[in-house]
Amino acid sequence: MIHEADEVLKKLLSGGALAGTGVEIAFEAPTRDWAARRNAPTIDAYLYDIREDSKRRESGSTEVRDERGMVLRRRLPPRWFRLSYLVTAWTKRPQDEHRMLAAVLATLVPHELLRPEELTGSLAALGLTVPLTVAGNLDARSSAEVWSALGGELKPSVDVVITVPIPSFPEYDAGPPVEELGVRVRATAGTGADSAERYFPRRPGGAVAEAGRAVAE
């Protein structure tokens, strides 16, 4: 899931306002040594924090249905994790870096919700919309802490958070679907015979047909 989020972010950053500029997209830790080796304009998206978004945790189970609406399996709801990226621009002049960061904002801000068709691999297969937060006020580690841990100098950056679903296991197979319901009225003592059993076909979605067929015993 994490590498697929990287691919989505790289695709977004390579397009939009940065399309055709020749800017490289990297996912390296922006240490002093790495910065010294840069010889081309680069946008670096360093993944510095991974933590669960506990507010999105759900209980119970969800149903997996076929094209007729029948329940095939039941699965636990996915767990959601926030992937926090420190996005920085690297070139020779601060003004150029500021322009690149402005392009990052212009490119990512319109994509606050990533639809399944914008995702890749197993992320897309889940069919869920993935939120993307740009420069939000989240409780991840501060930029100053990150730069201190990297041993580098504080530099303008944009915090980008992609909250991705991670499937929970196991899945449980559902029992065979109910195709029809049978009804029989039993007589009390001295009131006559029991009624014939009547069967009511079940329609897709769980509704029972109004008209049934009588079957004599």
Rank of each mutant, 00 (worst) to 15 (best):
D44E: 09
L86Y: 02
K11Y: 00
R65S: 09
R37E: 14
R38H: 08
E67H: 14
L72N: 09
G15T: 13
N39T: 15
R38G: 04
G60R: 10
E24C: 10
K10H: 01
M100W: 06
D33F: 10
Y46T: 03
R79E: 08
E67S: 15
T88R: 01
S59R: 12
V87P: 02
R37Y: 02
A19E: 14
R51Y: 13
H98I: 04
R79K: 12
V23T: 15
R79T: 09
V104N: 04
W90G: 02
R68Y: 11
L83S: 13
K92M: 11
T91N: 09
E67Q: 14
E112W: 14
T42L: 11
V23C: 11
R82C: 10
P110Y: 10
R75P: 01
I43D: 00
S54W: 08
S84N: 15
P30H: 07
P94D: 03
R75V: 09
A106D: 13
E63I: 06
L72Y: 02
K10R: 12
R82H: 08
L76Y: 11
A89R: 02
L105W: 01
S14G: 15
R93F: 07
R74N: 12
S14M: 05
W34H: 03
P116L: 04
F27P: 06
L86F: 07
L86N: 04
G60I: 09
W90D: 03
A36L: 11
E52F: 11
D49Q: 13
E63W: 06
D33C: 03
R65V: 15
L108T: 03
L83Q: 13
L12E: 03
H98E: 02
P41W: 05
A26H: 03
A89T: 00
T91Y: 07
F27G: 05
R115P: 00
R57N: 09
K92N: 13
L76G: 02
E58I: 07
D53Y: 01
